[in-house]
Amino acid sequence: MNVLLLEDDRGAAAHIQHGLSGLGHLVHLATDGRAAYADLCDRDFDVAVIDRMVPGMDGLSMVRRLRADGNSTPVLILTALSMVEDRIEGLEGGADDYLAKPFAFTELVARINALARRPQKTTDIAHLRAQDIEMNLLRREVTRAGRMIDLQPREFRLLEQLLRHGDRIVTKTMLLETVWDFDFDPRTNVVETQVSRLRTKLNEGFANDAIQTVRGSGYMIRTVG
């Protein structure tokens, strides 16, 4: 998954970034609140891990501003401010979860995974589209250039994730979590195999490949040619 980390302590940032990257997550580091706010406005992240006491704009003020803008990115506040009133202030300020420092890295990972699994507000969208590929979520139908494509349930969910993240890389870890409900890497090529099958069905009769493989990162579908 794509994670935004707002942390100005170099040691803490390196520890978290190294740990999450080792699990297959893409971590974008920001060291001040204004930069993190701009990143969250310009790009889509699956989860944001936010320290409260940072320069530029404090983490809680940044979260409040995001929520006022209608940005619903799941936010975990990770901070040394651990009093009950601090937790209440953070949660009422728009955070989805609150973890005090010092913390166990395994607990941080579990909380991030839990936030990423929460249903997103985009689930009320009935149609998804990228170039000549259209998906009707209500009818569970997929067409390419008007031609119906028969997909198995897992293939449908896989394509749905790629379409929802149009023009953005979807990592293997993200697909394992959202399509297979795995919180770990099973060390198999299940993702690669399923993507290959989906690609074959989508590309039959067409010259251009619908799914782009980004070597070492994941997969993506372009919304425009």
Rank of each mutant, 00 (worst) to 15 (best):
A38P: 00
P119K: 11
Q120C: 09
D86I: 10
N2C: 00
I221D: 01
M62C: 08
V49D: 02
G225L: 04
T188L: 09
A126E: 08
T73K: 07
D150G: 03
T123A: 10
E192Y: 11
T123Y: 13
I16M: 14
Y37W: 14
E7G: 04
L26Y: 07
G225M: 05
M62S: 01
F184G: 06
T123H: 14
I133H: 04
D58N: 15
G225V: 04
L175D: 00
A110P: 00
T79R: 07
I133T: 12
A35H: 11
D97T: 05
Q131A: 12
L175N: 06
Y219W: 13
M62V: 07
V54G: 03
G22H: 07
R129P: 01
L99M: 15
M220I: 03
L81Q: 12
L99E: 00
Y98D: 06
G205L: 03
T123L: 13
I149P: 00
D46Q: 08
N208I: 05
D124M: 10
V54P: 01
V190D: 06
Q131P: 00
H127M: 07
R222K: 11
L81W: 07
L5R: 12
Q152A: 14
V109Q: 12
E155N: 07
D209N: 14
R64E: 15
A145P: 04
D181K: 12
L20N: 03
Q17T: 11
A14H: 10
R111N: 06
K121V: 08
D209E: 15
H18V: 04
R168V: 02
I221F: 07
K101A: 10
K201E: 08
L159Y: 02
M57K: 13
Q194W: 09
T188D: 12
L108H: 06
G146T: 10
F103T: 02
T123R: 14
T143D: 02
K121I: 12
P186Q: 07
L78G: 04
M135W: 06
L163R: 06
R87L: 00
R144Q: 05
M83W: 02
T171W: 06
G24E: 12
P119C: 11
R157Q: 12
T223K: 14
D185P: 02
V142E: 04
V190I: 15
D96L: 09
D167C: 05
H28N: 12
F45A: 09
M148C: 06
D181S: 13
E92G: 01
D69R: 15
L128W: 14
D58M: 03
N208E: 14
D42Q: 14
Q212D: 15
S196T: 14
R199L: 03
D9P: 02
L138Q: 15
V49R: 05
G33S: 07
V109H: 08
R129K: 14
R164D: 00
R147W: 04
V191I: 14
V75D: 05
A130D: 03
F182L: 11
M62N: 06
T193N: 11
F184V: 09
V84Y: 09
H15N: 08
P119G: 10
K101N: 07
E107V: 10
G146E: 09
